[in-house]
Design a protein around this nucleic acid. Structure first.
Lengths: 237, 237
DNA sequence: ATAATAGTGTCTCTAAGACATTATATT
DNA sequence: AATATAATGTCTTAGAGACACTATTAT
């Protein structure tokens, strides 16, 4: 067996046991002063009745990114949104059926783009980027029992975007194409769960050169209308 | 089939094809003004002759973290070092044998703790946290051909620790228990590939309250010896 | 006119960078 | 004494927070 081609022709993948690999998606949006995630109530075992992130097994000829994109397309009917790999969860007792390793992704969407999805309010019990599990609440504010380790996945997603927000304008992804600075600040404040200084927030955002004034103004409430901005892709100098 | 117990008793895992899952470890150290990684030259197909990160398949009853710890223990004979999950690589053409998904981890060590490991100098061609593949060099400065997508894994590891360094004293992990501020600064400068202001580096480190003066001094070179510091675990207030 | 929020100008405070000075070791 | 780096002190500068003031809309 000398060449790699010969090696591969004779390669026997063997019959050692392999884990199943899935992708679970934390599909997040921000509205009503809270971070929300899409959850589905499971109608079959295991964890029947509990609430779960949209997920699916990875096809044998499908990349991880493609699997995450497929969840977005098939379950949420959207594409072109912010999507990033989060973390892989491979504990032994995650799924009582069999060994399942999940590669978690998270996506950020403007809720107006997908009004039919079942978003549920998240209750984040820790400050800053402390981390820890995050539960979801029903419309009455009662905790929804989550399936598997999905509270940990949601917690990791919140921790990640809180960290990113400090140096990345990730909040754009949660708003429509045109938005006011006030709306952007509200998104940041909701995710970080703390008030931000209005003046320095404005200055930072405008100084970042990632915002582009449209010249248009919001069709206002009962006060002076704010200018609408748009995300400016980092121009190639 | 009404209870979950019954469901599980009857559950058939099915015979759909599953990918293999591996853990690869970017075992990094900083010395000689460069970041170094442990690489092994593969002596068998696939990618025979190329250089690869230490890695292994995940056992069917072994968590991802446990697999990474096992690589450290079996291949590097060390434990108790900084270890963190990095990213999962699941492209289709990664391994010509069969579908392999790799969960990459990275670890940081003081080279003095593991003098027998084959560290190789990394050549990081991009500034800041731009990202991209990272190649390794042999002792003569010639590029070492890396196996699979390991240049991408190394690139992701460098990007991650550069980002962490801005708000985390991760550099401690690469030094012996007692170290001078100058040594710590050199580690930071090497990883970030840019000079740092000595005064403000001192101030930042001392202000972080994560350093503890030992009262001892280095057994010096030909100049005033610097005070030795030690990492102070964030005390519970 | 009044209410409400948008947007600007300026002062203060903090932290980083720059630089000068003093301290302490080896040769 | 000369040299090299450690460690301290102070001035300057940049950015964040605070706050006052002006602008513009609906009612």
């Amino acid at each position: 067996m000398s060449t790699e081609a010969e090696f591969l022709a004779n390669y026997d993948a063997g019959d050692f046991e392999r884990p199943s690999v899935a992708v679970d998606l934390a599909l997040l949006s921000v509205f009503d002063d809270a971070v929300h995630a899409v959850l589905y109530q499971r109608d079959r075992h295991p964890a029947a009745g509990r609430w779960a992130l949209p997920g699916t097994f990875v096809g044998i000829q499908e990349s991880l990114d493609a699997t995450a994109t497929r969840i977005l397309r098939e379950r949420a009917k959207i594409e072109g949104v912010y999507l990033e790999q989060l973390y892989s969860f491979g504990g032994l007792g995650r799924d009582p059926r069999t060994r399942v390793i999940t590669v978690a992704y998270y996506a950020l969407v403007d809720r107006a783009r997908c009004p039919d999805l079942g978003f549920h309010r998240l209750d984040i019990p820790w400050p800053g980027e402390t981390g820890g599990p995050v539960d979801a609440l029903d419309a009455q504010g009662a905790p929804l029992p989550l399936a598997f380790d999905h509270a940990d996945i949601l917690g990791m997603a919140i921790k990640r975007i809180r960290g990113k927000l400090d140096y990345t304008p990730i909040g754009f992804q949660l708003l429509p194409e045109r938005f006011t600075l006030r709306a952007l600040q509200t998104v940041h404040e909701t995710i970080l769960a703390r008030p931000l200084n209005k003046d320095s927030f404005r200055r930072r955002m405008l100084a970042s050169a990632q915002l582009e004034a449209t010249g248009e103004r919001e069709d206002s409430a009962r006060h002076r209308p704010a200018e609408l901005y748009r995300f400016a892709r980092r121009s190639a100098v």
